[in-house]
């Protein structure tokens, strides 16, 4: 299972909420170590699909495996091998950075030596040793997001799911955040990221563009731009979104 093995396999994923079809027959694979972008406007069904892959929600139908585990029957096994960072910032603001790390390390049953190693790593990465004893709530949003990302990787998961990780921060902080993503990817971690920032799409190895619950396109950013004769991912997206509107109208 090295190199370009498939870590996520999705065939005909359908998720319905009543009559509303949030995910309409999605089919795609994600390879080990790649940065896989999941793009789409708000409400296109990105988060729904991601929640299914993380074992937070059950699909209506389809064959889905994550790290070789089946999402219907082995969702708890999936949870041991993935990291997740949600849209909502979700560390405990009333605890210090070290306390948050210790908590998540405990949940993933990390031995003490490994936890201390991770703490040291984080201290180096953030260039601020004193940060460990600061309350998370007192940190700026950009820092919190970097922290949440580091903690999502505390148990060395094979895949990390990032749901709009850079929402609400300035472009410089976003760039710094993407540096962390590249680092993780270089270490062999598969990154599955949803976003609606089209410039971020260009940082991904491959992107999927979702419109109204369906996958409209799936390829490398360069290939997509060429196919649609566009100069940026933003133009690719606009072309696809307009086409979808016409089809509906």
């Amino acid at each position: 299972m090295m190199g370009n093995g498939k870590v996520i396999e999705v065939k005909n994923l359908v998720k319905k909420f009543g009559n509303f079809v949030a995910n309409d027959h999605l089919t795609f694979d994600v390879h080990r170590g790649e940065i896989f972008g999941f793009l789409g406007a708000n409400g296109a069904g990105k988060t729904t699909a991601m929640r299914i892959l993380c074992g937070l929600s059950k699909p209506t139908s389809g064959e889905i495996t994550v790290n070789g585990f089946d999402v219907y029957r082995q969702s708890e096994a999936i949870k041991r091998t993935i990291g997740y960072m949600s849209q909502k910032f979700s560390l405990y603001e009333d605890m210090t950075v070290a306390e948050n790390m210790r908590f998540y390390a405990g949940i993933y049953k990390l031995p003490r030596s490994k936890r201390l190693k991770k703490e040291a790593e984080l201290r180096d990465k953030l260039h601020m040793p004193e940060i460990m004893n600061k309350l998370v709530g007192s940190l700026p949003l950009g820092w919190k997001q970097k922290l949440a990302f580091s903690i999502a990787l505390i148990h060395d998961p094979g895949i990390v799911f990032l749901d709009e990780p850079t929402g609400g921060v300035d472009p410089i902080t976003r760039r710094q955040f993407w540096k962390l993503i590249y680092e993780a990817s270089a270490n062999g971690i598969t990154v599955f990221v949803t976003t609606h920032y089209m410039d971020e799409a260009e940082y991904c190895d491959r992107v999927t563009i979702m419109v109204d619950g369906r996958i409209e396109a799936l390829d490398t950013p360069a290939q997509l731009m060429q196919t649609y004769g566009a100069s940026s991912m933003n133009d690719v997206f606009l072309t696809l979104a307009r086409k979808a509107k016409k089809a509906v109208g």
Partner: peptide, 9 residues
Amino acid sequence: TTEQLNVTP
């Protein structure tokens, strides 16, 4: 944070 807890084992 509930959701974060729910994706853990």
